[in-house]
């Protein structure tokens, strides 16, 4: 048995916001439970109230809206992995989700849960960061939009205030001329990332007109590698430039040593993962090396 708590199952998002606002910081949200229940069992959290969002169909959807995709926060990783809209519009997200956890976990774990749990190793984050996704948050004051780069504030910490719920993720879709890829280093398939990297590039006239790189598990939060990006933008799309830009990753990250890997190992592997992700992204963008 888990530690005791009071269970609530609101029938709507509106009711959930009201409930969470009333209950205050002693309440935790549950969706798939694949993070919360593990933490409760380990005694890391012991909420007095658990608010179950797993039945809220209004936050469980994948909608194609032309140049962007809207994904409800309650959508399971399994639904994302099997979505044609995601495969077409945000293939790098599908690539990352494919490598996450096991089937048994993905059938209940949600994309909103992965983001709100705010693990530095949240694999859904780097792909959404290179896509410049926006997170729609609803709360007692109404609705606000948060760029994903501003959502995480530390390990397990987000900008969500009391009563606020992540409702949906808005992702600009890949455009013609762009290519993206995800790389993950792990001890075995389905395990947590030791380090991960996502890259999205746009090449035109033999140059990187756009380059976005994000890393996971190598800083207190998932992060954009801005120095790598600066070393690419506007420069010719050559393997040499890509390689030297990848080395800038070391200056973008702040890895720690933990059970999964040492700081030094993460530093070296970040460079490798960024390079591999960029190379595959360039090939997918049309393979036009200058």
């Amino acid at each position: 048995m888990l530690p005791e708590f009071e269970y609530h199952r609101p029938a709507s998002l509106e009711e959930a916001v009201r409930l969470l606002s009333e209950l205050g910081p002693d309440a935790k949200v549950i969706a798939g439970g694949t993070d919360l229940v593990v933490k409760m069992r380990a005694g890391l959290v012991s909420p007095r109230h658990v608010v179950d969002l797993s039945r809220l169909t209004e936050i469980r959807f994948i909608r194609d809206e032309g140049d962007r995709l809207k994904i409800g926060a309650g959508t399971t990783l399994w639904e994302i992995e099997n979505s044609r809209e995601v495969a077409r519009g945000v293939p790098v997200l599908r690539e990352a989700v494919e490598e996450m956890a096991s089937w048994h976990v993905k059938t209940t774990a949600t994309i909103g849960g992965n983001l709100c749990n705010a693990s530095p190793a949240a694999d859904a984050a780097p792909p959404l960061m290179v896509h410049d996704a926006t997170l729609v948050v609803v709360g007692p004051e109404g609705r606000r939009e948060v760029p994903i780069g501003e959502f995480f504030t530390g390990p397990g910490q987000t900008v969500l205030g009391v009563g606020e719920i992540l409702a949906e993720v808005v992702v600009p879709k890949m455009r013609r001329g762009q290519g993206a890829a995800f790389e993950k280093l792990t001890v075995r398939e389905g395990a947590l990332s030791i380090a991960s990297a996502a890259a999205l590039v746009e090449i035109s006239g033999g140059r990187f007109v756009d380059a976005r790189v994000a890393l996971g598990a190598v800083a207190p939060t998932p992060i954009r590698a801005l120095k790598v990006e600066r070393a690419l933008k506007g420069r010719p799309a050559t393997r040499e430039i890509l390689r030297s830009a990848s080395r800038e990753a070391k200056a973008d990250i702040k890895p720690i040593t933990d059970v999964r890997g040492s700081r030094e190992y993460r530093e070296e592997m970040s460079v490798v993962l960024v390079r591999r992700a960029l190379e595959r992204a360039v090939e997918r963008a049309g393979g036009a090396w200058a």
Partner: peptide, 22 residues
């Protein structure tokens, strides 16, 4: 803790970890 899969059951036809579901 959701690692071993011994507690697998099907919910609406899909496999889940019954130790992680309330």
């Amino acid at each position: 803790t959701g690692e071993c899969g011994m507690c697998t059951v099907l919910v609406d036809g899909l496999p889940v970890r019954s130790c992680l579901m309330l």
